[in-house]
Every structure is written in structure tokens, then in C-alpha cells.
Design a protein around this nucleic acid. Structure first.
Length: 178
DNA sequence: TCTAATCTTATCAATCTCTGATTGATAAGCCCATTAGA
């Protein structure tokens, strides 16, 4: 899972965002919203963030963690009561009623250039670096974080494919020699 | 110790351009993801 095979483990430990401490009131609202729908659409997420006076990306992270906790709970309670059986039932409905995603962000070539340069410098930027980059290119920090996630992922895939590509190139060379 | 923050991986889906390739957004994590701050 997390970063054992990462190329730059030493720079993985950049400073994190400081932990958000939700108040009881905020948690009440979050939990209520989660019971209504564990898969919030972008608009609802934003409205909820506004309501509890936090950032939309904090709401997103809380929902991700809450779903994970919820899954664990369900596993540890195999003799489900009515409520949890309803939880199991609603998975298909959830998928059908899932709200709209966030609109796809499109980056300008100049923004991409900045991001690529930063990635080459450090594929695991800490919160300060991400915020600085976000400010520099005029994109929310949460989008910068997602961009780096996707970039790392595709970088790993590319790296995995490279030995095969080299092998096939070598094979081609050998065939040509023959 | 609890749980927010973060990670990798897989998949969905928008966009560009021509039908698949690229890439942003989202979800799951199963020996119940791992890491780390309060």
C-alpha cells in the first residue's frame, strides 16, 4: 500500500497539513449527512463545507475515512441488524443516485510546466510546497494534490513497463543482427 | 490511542479527435491500506 516501493521515501515525510479538529457540532452535521448519503456529489460537498465552515477537501477526506470506518464496522458485525442490512441494500441505489462529480480541471501549458518542474524536483511535496504551487498557478491546493497523486501513479506504471520495453528493444536488436 | 492525512492502485469519465489515448476525479484498501499529529 503506502509508499514502501516509492522511489523517494526519504522525501515522503514532508510536513503534513495540520490535523483538523472537528467540533461536536461539525461532527453531528457530518455524520447526519453521511447517513443520508455516504457518497456526496461535489455541490453537496461544497454546501456542507460552507455549513460547517471548513474546506471542501476536508469534507472529502472525512467522508473517505468515514466510509473506511464504516466498512470495518460492517465486517466486525456480521449479524447485522436492520440498519446495517439497509446499508448493504443501498449500495446499488447509492451508485445510481450518485451526484455529479466535480468538473474536470483543465490546466494550461504554463500551469503544467510549473507542475512538472515541481514534480521532477520532488514527487512528494508537503503542504507548504503544494500551497505555494497552488498560489503560483492559481489552482486550489486540493487539485495540486490530486495532480501529484495521478502523476506518481502513472510514473510508477511507466517505470514498471520500462524493463519490458527495454527487453523487447533488445530482442528486436538481436533479431536484426541475425 | 484515535483518526485526519496521505499513500497506491484501479476505475470511471471528460476531452480531444476519430476510436482510442490521455488524464482529472473518485473509491477502496481485506492477514479490516499506512503514517503520524494531537
Amino acid at each position: 500500500m503506502a509508499q514502501d516501493n516509492s522511489p523517494n521515501k526519504t522525501i515522503t515525510m514532508n510536513q503534513r497539513r495540520s490535523r483538523t479538529k472537528f467540533t461536536e457540532d461539525q461532527l453531528k452535521i457530518l455524520i447526519k449527512a453521511f447517513h443520508q448519503n455516504p457518497y456526496l456529489g461535489y455541490a453537496t460537498k461544497q454546501r456542507l463545507a460552507l455549513e460547517i465552515n471548513t474546506d471542501e477537501s476536508r469534507v472529502q477526506t472525512w467522508f473517505q475515512n468515514q466510509r473506511a470506518r464504516h466498512q470495518c464496522q460492517k465486517k466486525s458485525e456480521p449479524d447485522e441488524d436492520l440498519e446495517s442490512s439497509q446499508d448493504q441494500d443501498h449500495s446499488e441505489e447509492e451508485i445510481q443516485s450518485r451526484e455529479d462529480r466535480r468538473c474536470r480541471t483543465s490546466y494550461t501549458s504554463s500551469q503544467l510546466h510549473t507542475l512538472f518542474e515541481a514534480f521532477m524536483n520532488n514527487p512528494y511535496p508537503g503542504i507548504d510546497t503544494r500551497e505555494q504551487l497552488a498560489k503560483e498557478i492559481g489552482i486550489p491546493e486540493s487539485r495540486v494534490q490530486i495532480w501529484f497523486q495521478n502523476r506518481r501513479s502513472r510514473f510508477h506504471v511507466q517505470r514498471k513497463r520500462e524493463p519490458d520495453d527495454q527487453d523487447s528493444e533488445q530482442r528486436q536488436d538481436q533479431e536484426q543482427d541475425l
